[in-house]
Simulated scan of single mutants.
Amino acid sequence: MQLSGTSSLLWYKLANDQKESHMKMFEAQPTTARDIETFKKEISTVRSVDDLMKNRTLLKVTLSAFQLESEIDKYAFVKKMLTEDPENDDSLVNRMLEPRWTKLTKALYALNENPDFFQDEKNVNAILNGYKTNEFEKFEGKTAEGVREALYFKRMAGGVEELSQIMADKSIMHVVRVGLGLPESFQSLEYEQQKTRLEKQVDIEDFKDPAKIDKMIERFLVMTEINNNDPMANPMLSLFQPVAPAGGFVGPQPISLNLQV
Rank of each mutant, 00 (worst) to 15 (best):
1 M>K: 15
3 L>E: 15
6 T>A: 14
8 S>W: 06
10 L>V: 14
12 Y>K: 13
13 K>T: 14
13 K>N: 10
14 L>N: 03
17 D>Y: 02
17 D>N: 11
21 S>M: 09
24 K>Q: 09
26 F>V: 08
32 T>F: 06
33 A>T: 06
34 R>E: 11
37 E>W: 00
46 V>D: 00
48 S>L: 11
55 N>D: 12
56 R>W: 02
57 T>I: 08
58 L>H: 09
58 L>K: 04
60 K>A: 04
62 T>P: 03
66 F>W: 12
69 E>M: 04
70 S>W: 09
74 K>L: 05
78 V>E: 06
78 V>G: 08
80 K>W: 15
80 K>H: 13
84 E>W: 04
84 E>I: 02
86 P>V: 05
88 N>S: 05
93 V>C: 07
94 N>L: 03
95 R>D: 12
96 M>D: 01
98 E>Q: 14
101 W>P: 02
101 W>G: 01
106 K>H: 07
106 K>E: 08
109 Y>E: 04
109 Y>R: 01
109 Y>H: 10
111 L>W: 09
112 N>W: 15
114 N>E: 12
114 N>K: 15
117 F>G: 00
121 E>Q: 15
131 Y>E: 02
133 T>C: 03
137 E>G: 03
139 F>E: 01
141 G>I: 02
145 E>V: 06
146 G>P: 14
147 V>G: 02
149 E>T: 04
156 M>E: 15
157 A>Q: 09
158 G>W: 11
160 V>H: 01
160 V>G: 07
165 Q>R: 05
165 Q>N: 04
165 Q>F: 06
166 I>D: 01
168 A>F: 07
170 K>G: 11
175 V>C: 11
177 R>Y: 08
179 G>L: 02
181 G>I: 04
191 Y>G: 01
191 Y>A: 11
197 R>I: 14
198 L>W: 08
199 E>Y: 00
205 E>H: 09
205 E>W: 00
208 K>S: 12
216 M>S: 05
224 T>M: 13
224 T>P: 00
224 T>W: 08
225 E>T: 15
227 N>T: 04
230 D>A: 00
230 D>W: 04
230 D>P: 02
233 A>G: 08
233 A>H: 14
237 L>I: 07
238 S>M: 15
239 L>P: 09
241 Q>T: 09
243 V>G: 04
247 G>T: 07
247 G>L: 12
253 Q>L: 12
254 P>D: 02
255 I>L: 15
256 S>K: 15
259 L>A: 01
